[in-house]
Write a protein that binds this DNA or RNA. Structure first.
Lengths: 129, 129
DNA sequence: CAATTAATTAGAATTAGTCTAAATATATAC
DNA sequence: GTATATATTTAGACTAATTCTAATTAATTG
């Protein structure tokens, strides 16, 4: 077994926090939640665990320019919508992504690895208000 | 004339740096270049100027999670390709973006404002090497 | 169980960016 | 054109997110 393959108590605590939530918590929110189960866990360990879990393909990191990274239990390829008003982040999948990747590769002359699409707009809740 | 509409020497220096470059410099790179023409310009003024120029629609800010924002002289809607090896950032435009936005809005139930697509892969130079 | 190796911890360090208060510059009113 | 008001710039302090470091603890192997 390779060294980096152990799901320690700390790593599991971080994973369970992410899996238990519908939303997309930040490292800080994960730290706050994890320490309720494991009071001695440190901030650095949360970051180390997140890196481990990402590399193991168990969680997905979402980075927008604004503020902290968010973490997602959904690891399959998917896209995101962000509300310009309240910041809400929603996952969805665009089935035409494979075609898009080809079109983008042709335009840019890059050898494609992945595509990701971000919609900015107003979420249903904020639209009402 | 509204207060925030003057293209001062500092703001113009920042704008000229961005317009003179093919690439997408960071705030720090812009600062280094601008001070060659205007040695007393401060870091804070570069940031202030970038905000002003963005709001005036004269430059475009590109934020990926990794590292600093980059600034783009191209202000029309467009997409980006990033090289996973060397970090090179290339602009291109996908004409089907309008359709994509509609499809994404339908899936996410958001009222759409803009879409942006990011291709990750290997740039032509890195592909050779 | 002694020796390695891996993981965790606490806190310092780093990076990107913002804020603040004082100093300059520009514009407006007499 | 001088006084007043408003805008802009400056330098440096500050903040937030993340990474690094060195010491400690836990786990694994011979």
């Amino acid at each position: 077994m390779k060294p980096e393959e152990k799901l320690t108590r700390q790593r599991d605590a971080v994973l369970q926090v992410i899996r238990s939530r519908e939303d997309h918590p930040t490292a800080n929110e994960i730290f706050q939640a994890a320490r309720q189960h494991l009071p001695t866990i440190s901030y650095a360990t949360v970051y180390n665990s997140l890196r481990f879990l990402k590399e193991a393909g168990l969680v997905h990191e979402i980075k927008f320019g604004d503020g902290a990274s968010r973490y997602d239990r959904e690891t399959d390829r998917h896209d995101h919508a962000i509300c310009n008003d309240c910041g809400k982040l929603v996952d969805f999948d665009l089935p035409q992504a494979a075609d898009l990747m080809k079109a983008a590769a042709r335009k840019s002359k890059f050898q494609p690895a992945s595509v990701h699409l971000t919609l900015r707009g107003t979420c249903p809740d904020c639209r009402k208000a």
